[in-house]
Design a protein around this nucleic acid. Structure first.
Lengths: 114, 114
DNA sequence: TTGATATTTTGATAAATATACAAACATGGA
DNA sequence: TCCATGTTTGTATATTTATCAAAATATCAA
């Protein structure tokens, strides 16, 4: 993972509204959530929500698909897992046996089958 | 974990120099690294490095201890693990069996024995 | 005590960004 | 066509953010 990619992802998450959106999507699972439902549950104005969704999307942390008149957003689990692995990469240089391996972290959440 | 805590941690990491510093400390392990060694390896001016170390420290991501005329900085593994667990909390609401549990993530790297 | 090394603080500067809202626009379905 | 769902644009405002030079602090050694 490129450091610039990691920095954009972290910057996108470093804001309360966006972090809440992202966590809601992580918890929603692969089916995702319609923009309207996110707006309702977080009490954010539609235009403001769109702005934040775009930020997360640009950072590669979420994806979107049209479903009828709804737009369903989903967490990009692979991107998240890659970020987690990047943060802990080469942890302790292996000095502590209990640390998770990069492989274990890249499948931390909803791993996509190869 | 409080969302504001998570946001400060993410904001602290959302900068190239600081992310590099933090990753270097994660890899250095519990012994840590002297400020000077970090400055050398990243080619950052001392004052600038101090500024960034303080940011990371305020966010609770690193700690420091004096060692002779050196100051040794260490990653706060517990804070990092807590952050990872917060991001993935309640992932998929358990729909995917393979997801790591919060407990597994809070010991992702260099877990502190209870 | 004096000098040398290591690190932090301060003050100044310069550039940039970030968030929110209102209103207009686009798209899909009944 | 009309309504519901979302997105875009323009605008306003406030707030940071990163860096450097120079001075200050701290520890050790001669």
């Amino acid at each position: 993972m490129e450091i610039k990619t990691a920095v954009s992802a972290l910057a996108a998450l470093a804001q309360e509204t966006r972090l809440s959106i992202f966590r809601a999507l992580v918890q929603a699972g692969p089916d995702g959530l319609a923009a309207g439902r996110i707006a309702d549950s977080l009490s954010v104005a539609p235009a403001t929500l769109s702005f934040h969704l775009k930020e997360l999307s640009h950072a590669g942390l979420i994806g979107a698909r049209q479903d009828g008149r709804y737009v369903l957003y989903t967490a990009n689990y692979e991107a998240m897992n890659t970020l987690l692995a990047y943060l802990t990469e080469n942890c302790c240089r292996g000095a502590t046996a209990d640390c998770l391996t990069p492989a274990e972290l890249t499948t931390a959440c909803c791993p996509t089958p190869p």
